[in-house]
Design a protein around this nucleic acid. Structure first.
Length: 510
RNA sequence: GGCUCGGUAGCUCAGUGGUAGAGCAGGGGACUCAUAAGCCCUUGGUCGUAGGUUCAAAUCCUACCCGAGUCACCA
């Protein structure tokens, strides 16, 4: 990673409905990246909502309210959900905010002046429901191939973006930066599209008015063109150069794979048209599936994310989402799998390690972290083996290999559990080998302190609880290079006994 | 149909030329500080199929089978 500030974005979420677990997924991933990046420097984490377009207008009309009132109501669901998941976003952009609309119009005007936006006529079949133009050859029996509804012939004067002009540069960019779109399969798909050739496309709509007005009149700006610009409007493009230069180009832009075209072809072209750089990395993750089916609201198989948080806890869900599958590919989501991860990894391995260690500390030393004489010797715990652990964990996370990162952390969990069994503190106590017991208990507690710090980006709430029980007062999210030095746990710290960190949940058998 | 990716232990996956791996699940054992958790040992795979290249292939090439994705505007 460069020394420049870290900037991570999620898609802004289209609020024609309420959020499901898939939306939480993308946002949790971004949150883990941001929290990790903050342990080594400046970071900015942007998320938000996409509030324009005909579908939002329609949803509002059905609810019998004005579009803006609809958005104001819906956005609260999203903010509530992300609060439940402890999402530490630095800014929440709404595309209906004046600060955003001003930028969209400024972009439009600049591109109109430079000639990359021009006036043309769009003619073709149009599906109102999907806000989509269709070629005659694509229609299914005269109906919209996507939603099956009727289409109408539309001919309207629109503004077009000169995408074709950037075809060659995009090809070059893809060839020169084979890692800029991940995973590989999405990169290949996009490269294939580029090789087929790009056409200019319409970026305005005349048929409805819920959108950013085209400067000077002539309809509203196409919702996608509007939406993409959130990534730069929020960090000050055209009005706050210092902030913009600090964070752009984005370090990581997370997306779902269904919107890869917009983010890896149209988006860089628009940026280049503005004289800006493309993002460093666009990462398209896979779907969550149930029984091999994509989870989505339209399929009716999306579980209520609020209920899932109530059942398992936000941290267990966060852990599951990152640990279960390699990031990028689809993965199957089920309560059974979550319960298994929760009970096995979190309850048995981590939670029980924490619990048994503090229980012994209380039984043998009144819960007070021993002072070790001489410091940090006479222990069998091989801490040198973990000297490079923080670096490995951070590198894996920032490379979006979350599963690798968690597996690395679990090496420490396993090593601590093994050490207890090998050194048998209950024997040391019975035989009055006080120095050995002190040294062992100290190392175990110090290991727990490391775990709390390393896991804080993934499980912020439970990590804070570990921190509190360990009697620690300073920041859990301090710079890892300074905080993760063995021996950082102050002797004589009074710890707090308590209930299980991850109480077992019963597996559903149905 | 074209293109892309994948098919490795019951499950989720790692492994891209040199004697098949991890976690979970299953089986056995020793212990007791602990959420009947943890620790140790262990069963289990002709690496989708058929050919080919090579001293040597899960790993490279070809064909085929199966699954997923994508093919111009689906947050």
């Amino acid at each position: 990673m460069s020394s420049r500030a870290f900037y991570v974005t999620t898609p802004i979420y289209y609020i024609n409905g309420t959020p499901h677990i898939g939306h939480a997924y993308t946002t949790v991933v971004a949150d883990v990246l941001a929290r990790t990046a903050r342990t080594q420097g400046d970071a900015f984490f942007l998320t938000g909502t996409d509030e324009h377009g005909q579908k939002v207008a329609n949803a509002a009309a059905e609810a019998g309210v004005a579009p803006q009132a609809w958005c104001d109501r819906l956005v609260e669901h999203w903010k509530d959900l992300f609060a439940r998941f402890e999402i530490s976003y630095d800014d929440w952009i709404r595309t209906t905010e004046p600060r955003h609309e001003r930028v969209v119009q400024a972009v439009f005007e600049q591109l109109r002046e430079s000639g990359d936006v021009y006036r043309g006529t769009y003619e073709g079949w149009y599906c109102v429901h999907d806000e989509t133009f269709w070629l005659d050859s694509k229609l299914a029996g005269g109906k919209c191939p996507t939603c099956g509804r009727g289409v109408e012939w539309l001919a309207e004067d629109d503004w077009f973006f000169r995408l074709s002009k950037y075809n060659d540069r995009l090809l070059r960019h893809f060839k020169e930066h084979p890692q800029w779109v991940r995973p590989r399969t999405v990169y290949n798909e996009m490269l294939a599209l580029l090789e087929e050739g790009l056409e200019d496309f319409s970026i305005s709509r005349a048929a409805f008015d819920w959108g950013v007005p085209v400067p000077g009149g002539g309809g509203v700006i196409y919702v996608w063109f509007d939406a993409l610009l959130n990534y730069i409007s929020a960090i000050g493009w055209s009005h706050d150069d210092a902030t913009f230069k600090k964070f752009w180009p984005a370090s990581v832009q997370l997306i779902g794979k269904e919107i890869a075209r917009f983010h890896t072809i149209i988006w860089p072209a628009v940026l280049w048209a503005l004289g800006e750089e493309a993002p460093e990395l666009v990462f398209a993750h896979g779907w969550m599936t149930t029984d091999g089916q994509k989870i989505g609201k339209s399929l009716g198989n999306a579980s209520d994310p609020f209920a899932e948080v109530d059942r398992f806890g936000a941290d267990s869900l966060r852990y599951f989402l990152l640990r279960e599958a390699p990031f990028g590919s689809d993965f199957s989501y089920s309560e059974e799998k979550i319960a298994q991860r929760h009970n096995s990894d979190l309850g048995n391995d981590l939670g029980n390690l924490f619990h048994r260690t503090l229980a012994m500390l209380h039984k043998y030393r009144e819960g007070i972290v021993p002072a070790v004489r001489p410091p940090l010797e006479n222990t069998s715990f091989d801490r040198l083996r973990f000297a490079d652990l923080p670096g490995r964990v951070r590198a894996s996370i920032l490379d979006l290999r979350f599963r690798d990162a968690l597996e690395a952390v679990w090496e420490l969990v396993t090593a601590l559990n093994r050490t207890i069994d090998e050194r048998k503190p209950w024997v040391l106590h019975k035989e009055n080998r006080a120095d050995e017991l002190d040294a062992l208990l100290y190392d175990l507690c110090e290991g727990l302190r490391w775990l709390a710090i390393l896991l804080a980006p993934v499980m912020p709430e439970r990590a804070r609880e570990m921190w509190r029980r360990l009697g620690l007062r300073d920041r859990i999210d301090a710079n890892w290079d300074e905080a993760l030095v063995w021996g950082g746990l102050p002797p004589q710290t009074q710890t707090v006994a308590g209930d299980a960190l991850f109480p077992r949940v019963e597996l559903i058998s149905s």
